[in-house]
Amino acid sequence: MSWTSILADLIGATILFAVPLLLVALGGMFSERSGVINIALEGIMIVGALCSCLTLVGLDKSGFGAAHPQLGMLIAILVAAASGAVFSLLLAFASINLRADQTIGGTALNMLAPAFAIVLTWAVQGQGQTTILIPTWTRITQDNFGIEKADTFFQNLIFKSFYLTTVVAVILFICAYVLMYKTRFGLRLRSCGEHPQAADSVGINVFKMRYAGVIISGCLGGIGGLAFTVAAGSGFQSSVAGYGFLALAVMIFGNWKPFTILGASLFFALFKIIGSYSDSIPFLPSFKNVNSSEYIYLMLPYVVTMIVLILTSKHSRAPKAEGIPYDKGTR
């Protein structure tokens, strides 16, 4: 392989893995800036991925998917968003209405989601069948645009791993920024995460705003789950490999702000990809004398995150009221 095609692969794969991190971290941002700690993102991702993958399989079997591939993918994305939102209502209900401990509620949902996914996959696909395979038509190829295949840098960069989720992520990122900073809704949402008592005193319904925050995070988390499964490539196996938690780290590292979150997710994804491409990148050490040196590269993103979190923690500014159930009596 020439170095240009390696570079194209590297950038393409980085973007592919940055998409789920970006979406889920943005989701976490909406929830936390409204004042609800959303540790359930991992579970929300799993539920979103589960429902959308089942949808994709259904569309594949009926023949609709092969006929209208990108429309099918869009339906799957909508299903992912809807299922994530419904699942996140469980968190919203416990932490907003019942003022339960948000971390505990989230942990329960994180346990529930993979177990539910395994049980449902068994029930749908038969005993011991734990993988839901994603149909191949979901990928956007040169054929979709009527371009001839060629081994050029840009074609390698774009078409090697191009899915509708990437496009949707870019659109949603812009929407998220505008919604958070340029609309009245965004201002109100943020105020509920900083000082809900003050927000309430000027007539903002804190409960409604927090519900909105959690539901938006559910939508984004669900789509993120689908984006992860698409990126992982080996089908849905009732797990998103800790990406929900990684997205939480991205969100904190991104200081709860959209643009820094974008940077942080690209940064993380790059370090993850360097690990899996370590064999084909010439200037990286290959650790010839070490058995299973892939673990060294698997550890890399976490080590880097740790160092970055330690270095940036002084500037880190979490929403003031996050994690505290709102009680009207405390005004």
Partner: peptide, 27 residues
């Protein structure tokens, strides 16, 4: 093999979810 054993995990998860409520009762 009639069921996936993860049904137990669902039961445990439901129990924790409810125990988050029980904190409210205790409060």
């Amino acid at each position: 093999p009639e069921y996936a054993k993860e049904i137990i995990d669902i039961i445990i998860a439901v129990i924790i979810y409810l125990s988050a409520f029980s904190l409210l009762v205790k409060n």
